[in-house]
């Protein structure tokens, strides 16, 4: 017993030496800001003021119309983008995973291109595509007689959020497709063959064999897509600045505006805490809900 404790102590010292660089950076740049954010969310904290106000910021937040609007927009973005991303990427992956290595690699590149191009480059080109006068979107839709007059995609409350969600979708399917291609490739082929021999149709093969094996991957994809959608920022800041009339503002954008444009640090941190808790709850719930019948 004594020697094993001694051995363990030795291993512990070695391990923490190896861990030290990561732990230092993690403590300074992740843990400390978390604690600071949580503490200052109870303060009226601006350029000139720093006084304890209890839960006033939280009360203010839930009574802040713009915050509620931003919360609803965030939820709309998540609810729209997550299922579409999952279905879309599952479709593309299942159509390509059995093809040659070259074809797979080609489609991986195609659907990953918008991600790699980078959020800023993608955003500025879409801004041009959506431009009411010189944008190609209006030109194409008018040529196809789908619209009669130029539409201001980003300036019109009815379309702006939709326009943003479309761009977001093009940047969120790349990673899920790669993941689905990989996990479809891992499914035991003999199992599917056996099912087919026994007279199962393609739908049954998918539902009874493929889908259960894909559940862990799907869960992971749902979680990362949810988190990414929550973080959607560059698109909004560069395209609409949350407008018109906050119709495209999200919690992330509103937090940025409060913190870096209006210097309301305490209030911004309150939203940060709220967002962190929300993401925590959602990730946890998704694990519980989707993970309930997952077998490893």
């Amino acid at each position: 017993m004594k020697t094993s404790h001694k051995l363990m102590m030795r291993e512990t010292i070695v391990s923490y030496t190896f861990l030290a660089p990561v732990l230092i950076f993690f403590a300074v740049f992740v843990l400390t800001p978390m604690v600071m954010g949580l503490v200052t969310s109870f303060f009226n904290y601006t350029m000139t003021d720093f006084t304890f106000v209890g839960i006033d910021n939280y009360i203010r937040m839930f009574n802040d119309e713009v915050f509620i609007k931003s919360l609803i927009n965030t939820i709309i973005i998540v609810v729209a983008s997550v299922p579409i991303t999952v279905i879309f990427s599952l479709f593309v992956a299942s159509q390509t995973y059995e093809k040659s290595a070259f074809t797979r690699s080609f489609f991986r590149c195609v659907f990953f291109l918008p991600v790699v191009t980078g959020s800023v480059a993608v955003t500025v080109v879409w801004k041009w595509i959506y431009d009411p006068l010189s944008g190609i979107m209006n030109y194409v839709l008018k040529s196809g007689n789908l619209i009669e007059q130029n539409i201001s995609w980003l300036g019109d409350k009815r379309y702006a959020l939709l326009a943003i969600i479309i761009i977001l979708l093009t940047t969120s399917v790349g990673q899920p497709i790669i993941l689905y291609i990989a996990s479809l490739g891992n499914i035991d082929k003999s199992l599917m063959e056996a099912a087919r021999v026994d007279g199962a149709n393609e739908f049954q093969v998918f539902w009874k064999i493929k889908w259960p094996s894909l559940l862990p991957t799907t869960l992971y994809i749902v979680v990362i897509t949810t988190i990414n959608s929550f973080q959607c920022f560059a698109l909004i800041q560069l395209l609409t600045s949350g407008g018109p009339n906050y119709s495209t503002s999200t919690i992330m954008y509103y937090l940025y505006e409060k913190a870096f444009k209006l210097s309301e640090y305490g209030y911004a941190n309150t939203m940060g805490v709220f967002l962190a808790v929300l993401i925590g709850i959602i990730s946890f719930a998704q694990f519980k809900f989707l993970g309930s019948d997952v077998e490893y």
Partner: peptide, 29 residues
Amino acid sequence: FYGQKLLFSIFIAAMALPKQVVIVPLVRI
């Protein structure tokens, strides 16, 4: 080693947390 499980759980939990939510204190630091 001692504290291994706890440490790993902390890392896993922190993976879900986007940097953006702690951006104000981060800029302060």
